[in-house]
Structure formats: structure tokens, C-alpha cells
Simulated scan of single mutants.
Amino acid sequence: MESFSKKVRTFDAFPKVDAQHQVRSSRGGFSTLLTIFCGLLILWVEVGGFLGGYVDHQFTVDPEIRSQLSINMDLLVAMPCEFIHTNVMDITDDKFLAGELLNFEGTNFFLPPTFDINNENAKYETPELDEVMQESLRAQFMSEGHRSNQGAPGCHIFGSIPVNQVSGDFHITGKGIGYRDRSNVPMDALNFSHVINEFSYGEFYPFINNPLDFSGKTTEDSLQAYKYYTKVVPTEYERLGILIDTNQYSLTEQHITYEIKTDGKLSGLPGIFFKYEFEPIRLKIIERRIPFIQFVSRLATIIGGLVVLAGYLYRLYESILSVLFGKKYVNRDTEKPGGLLDSKTPPIESKNY
């Protein structure tokens, strides 16, 4: 038992090199300081990454069956409200008179200076998790079916309308053109120039950016049609238990100028068309953190690898110096520890005779 305890006391899992076999040099000290600095930098980055987590993107089949969702819009059309007809039509042939819920306010048509006008919406980027969490303020329009100043040269259309969650389109056309109506708008009075401040699907989050937001189109042709094809993907954002359920959509555009045929009929229906399709998948954007044990293991592995790599690089550097300049150049700045006073050789005792 005594021999076992003695072995335990003398056991060293990390055996040290005797001082008489060690060599100090300025290059070795600099290498040690550089290794420590890199280790601290890696430690800072890894701890920050562990505390901040990482964003995980997952695509899954949408398990929820929804019958309806809302289309939220806020746009300005360069035509009097009394000339405008709005409608929703989907593949079930279910027609919904959107004008009963939307608000129409007559105003002057203008182009906001910060809006993207007459450009394709090709620079849109999906909002990041931090951006969505900061701007996820749910809202709703305070009025429905409001009408005012119908004869003004421009029409401000805003509100939310429920639609079936199937393929369909929401369109803005002229009264009596393509549909039977009590009044018919003269062809030369049509002008579908427009600016879009908001166009989104699902819950209304006015501060989350969407592909059609802050965009617009202008035209001088009265028989112009603007068609926006959107593919809607249900999207969940989650951080620290806070869940935001919204919808993103991709966008393609088509601009067509129609003509009047020889028989007096139009070759197509001018207007503004928002066609939508719903994808059967769901995108989940979740902030996660790795387990603490996995973090410690990863950190230990990185630091250990750094120390081993630093040793190899230092020996390689010494070998290169030795080949290029010789061993005398390499050893001239080295210093072995110990000296005459530190020698372990017992001193010679003087004897008096």
C-alpha cells in the first residue's frame, strides 16, 4: 500500500522536461506569447458564439391546413377611386368583392423619392432573424370599407382582405372593363401607374420588409397591365421561446401593353394583378445553442490543436533557420538555464591538515 501511494505521489500525467535539457530563446518566448494570444482570441470567439447561438434554417412539409389568410395592402393608384374596381378570384371560382372591405381615399398621385420606381424587384433579401425580432410589431387597419374624396386624381387603397388559401389573384381594373358594372370608364381615362407601400400575406407586420414594399411603376399607356406572380411560403421565426408566424413570398413580374382590335375589343385586360400560389412547405428559422458539454469539448479540442500546431510550426521555423543560416545562427540567441551556482555537483570540501 505504501509503494502504491508513493507511485501516486510521483505520478505526473504531464511530465516536465528537466531544466538542464531546456533552452530559452527570444524566438521561443515570442512563439509562446503568440500562441497565448491566439488561444485567448479563439476563446473569446467561441464563448461569444456559444452565448449568441446560431441560426438554423429548416424546411419541412407544412402540417397545418388553413382555409383562409389575409392579404394586407397599402398602395396608391394614379386614377380616381370612382373609376377603380377591385376583386379576388381563385381556382375554386369563389369571387370576393374586395372593395367592400378595402378603404378608398382620394388624393393626389405622387412618387415618393425613396421608392424603387420602374425597376424589377431583383435585389430583395430575406429578412434576418434579428431584423424580424426587432420589427415584429403586429398591427391592423382601423377601418373597413371607408370612402372619401372619390373624384380626386389618385386613389389610396389600403386594408386587409381574407382569401382562401388556394391559388388565385387579386386585381385592380377599371369599372366596366372586363366586368359588368353600372358605369364604364373611358379607355383614355385609365392609368395604372402605382406605388406600393405594403403588400404582404398573413398576419400584418407593417415593419417587416417584403419584395413589393416601397416599389412602384409608372406608365403613359392607358392599356397597360402589371402582373405580379408571388409564391407564398409560411415562415416561422423563433428565438428564446418567442414565435413569429408570418409568410414570405418570391416574386416575378410581367408588364404587358394591350391594344384595341379591329372589332373594337381589347386584346387583354389592363390593370394591376397580384397572382398568388401557396407552397406546401414551411420554413423555420430558429436560434439555437450547442449543449454546454459539447461546447467545452469543442473548446478543449481547438486549444489542444492550437498548442500542437504551434509546436510543429516553431520546430519547422527553427529547422528552416538552421538550413539557411546554420546552427550557430540559431543557437546564438539561446540561453540554457542554470549556472555555476545552480550546479547540482556537490562543492569540494576544504580540509585542514
Rank of each mutant, 00 (worst) to 15 (best):
M1Q: 08
S3F: 15
F4N: 03
F4E: 09
K6G: 02
K7L: 12
T10N: 14
V17A: 10
V23S: 10
G29D: 14
S31A: 14
T35L: 13
T35F: 05
G39N: 04
E46T: 12
V47K: 06
Y54S: 11
V77F: 01
E82S: 13
D90R: 03
T92M: 07
D93T: 10
L102C: 00
F104T: 00
E105D: 11
N108T: 13
N118W: 09
E125L: 07
E125K: 11
T126R: 13
E128N: 13
Q134I: 10
F141V: 02
F141S: 05
E144I: 07
H146T: 05
C155S: 01
G159E: 01
F170L: 14
I177S: 01
G178L: 02
G178H: 06
L190S: 02
E198V: 06
E203N: 13
P206Y: 00
P211V: 02
P211K: 03
E220N: 11
Y226F: 15
K227M: 10
Y229A: 08
Y237D: 00
L240Y: 13
G241R: 04
L243K: 15
H255E: 03
I260W: 07
I260F: 04
K275M: 09
E279K: 09
I281G: 06
L283W: 09
E287Y: 08
I293W: 07
L299S: 11
L299N: 05
V308R: 03
E318T: 13
I320Q: 10
I320M: 10
S322N: 12
S322Y: 10
F325K: 15
G326S: 09
P337G: 02
K344A: 09
